[in-house]
Every structure is written in structure tokens, then in C-alpha cells.
Amino acid sequence: MTGDNQKWLDHNTFHHGEFWDILDLVKEKEKKDLKISLCIPTLNEEKTIGKEVLILRSELMERYPLIDEFAVIDSGSNDKTLEVAESYGADTYLASEILPEVGDKRGKGENLWKAIHQLKGDIICYVDADISNIHPRFVYGLVAPLIKQAEVQYVKAFYDRPLNYSSGLRSSGGGRVTEILIRPLFSLFYPELTNIIQPLSGEYAARREVLEMIPFPIGYGVETSHLLDLYEKFGLSAFAQTDLDRRVHRNQTTNALGKMSFGILQTFINRLHSQGKIDRIPDVETFYRRFEVEDGSYNQLVQEVVEEERPPMIEIDSYRERTVSS
């Protein structure tokens, strides 16, 4: 490991326990006149959303006013996600009703992108909705480095990630897609980014100025593209990461992870090209193919996975107008 990498790890890697004094964070936030928004993107999360809203709102808005705004942005759930979130006090929005003039696309990245327009905070913190063991550390651990260090632009979570099996918990290491796909790719093309321990974690916080200047893939590639785009603009020094200890979440099937990897690869290859690391992109398919066996015969299953991207929010007229008027 080079000296610079070690220096970055020493200075920019935190543990949430370092930020236990939330009152101190609130004071520093107020001193620096920062506003913080929290966004939870959802799609059919009625089982876990109530707890997330209850705990985060109660602890980080009412007990300690660290968060100024708390929104659940939904992709059109057909369960009671929004009803439950509202009953515990969240502001809820349908992604399709934010910036209606740009249309509606389905995907987590779409909700994250539209949150930049909908929410007012100088810092936006994103937390996935499927965390069974939600705790305030999932938010204060991510926004704290942004409050305390002006040079940090983007903070990523990492965990000891046990998966939720019926027989109990077992450690999964760094996540299967991270270890099998992302880490090898980063090692090949962006070795410095391998310092990010869990590049695909769904929890991160960033300053508005950087979020509004990068494009957002609407699907699986959004976390990867954030890292690659911000790394190109600012280098590793703009990043920090926080150990949030244990995160209990749903286990995804290998098939689902294969489809996810297919989407991430599209984003990655696009970035390799746009950042000049490869000359041209060959014609590639957008159909993900896999097999299943039924009664001794092999059937090919084909799913289309197109990683569409939203442009940087700063390029959207209504956003610029909103920014000017505010």
C-alpha cells in the first residue's frame, strides 16, 4: 500500500462511535449554518419503513435536531409503504410527481436524483429502506465527517454485513458483488478507489454542490457512477467512509446479484470510455441471459437491463430556477 493510500485510510476512515455526541454535531451544524436532508428511497418496503421513520425522526429530528428534513421518495409501491411512513411522521413523495416535466423512470437512482430537487438541505443523506436494525448511527455516522471537515464531499458507509438467514446471522465479508465484480475492476482501472471498503453500500451522504453536478444512473449503477465521477473530479481526498458496524438486511439471490452486476458493468464500461480509459465501446447487448432447469430441460431466461442515466441536476431548468429563487 502506498503512503498516500495509508494516509487517506488513516484520516478519512471513521467509526460511528467517534461521533456519539450528537448534541455536539448539532451545535457545529448550526454554527456552520448547514441544513441536512434525509432521503429514504422506497419500493414496497412496508415491513421496514415504519421502524426507520420512527427511530430516525424521533432521535435525529425531535430529540436532537440534526436532520432538518426527512423525506420518503417512493417509486410507486403497491403495498402500504407510504401509509406506514406517513403514520410515523415522514414527508412522503411519489418520484413520478417530482419534476413531472422530465418524465418518470423506474429505479432507485431516479428517486435519489429527484431528491436533489425536492429537498432543501446543503447535505443530503441517503439511507436504504431495508435495514432491519436501523439506528441513528446510520445517519449521524455519515453526516458527521461532512459537518466536521470542509474538504470532505462524499461519505460512504461500510459494515460488518450479516445477511438475514432463517438460521440466524452469518458474516458475508464485503458483499458478493463488491468482492467478485467491483473490487477486481477497481484494482484494474482505479486502484485508489479500492480504499473504499464497501463501494456499493446504499447509505451515503454528500454535499449538494457535488450531487448536483454528476449524472445519476437510475438503476443498479448509481453507487458506482458516484464514485467514479467524483473521483475523476476531486480525487480520493473528497471521500470519507464510516464504519457503521452491523447492518441486517434481506439476502438477495445469486440471480438477482447477476442482474445487478450486469447493470453495474454497463455503467462502469461507459465511465471507462468517457474518462478516456478505453478508446471505444464495442456494440454491447442490454439483455441479461441466464438459465434455469425445469423437468430436465434447460430454459434460457432473458431480461432487459438498460442503465439509463439522468443528467446532472444542475442542467435541469426548473432546478436552476429554484436555486436562483431561493
Binding site: K51, K80, E83, V84
Partner: peptide, 11 residues
């Protein structure tokens, strides 16, 4: 301590 202490909050 070996029991998974996760509580689910419904409406």
C-alpha cells in the same frame, strides 16, 4: 444473546 434481537415495527 444468540437470539436475533431485531424488532419489526408495523402500523
Amino acid at each position: 444473546t444468540t437470539t436475533q434481537h431485531v424488532l419489526n415495527v408495523g402500523p
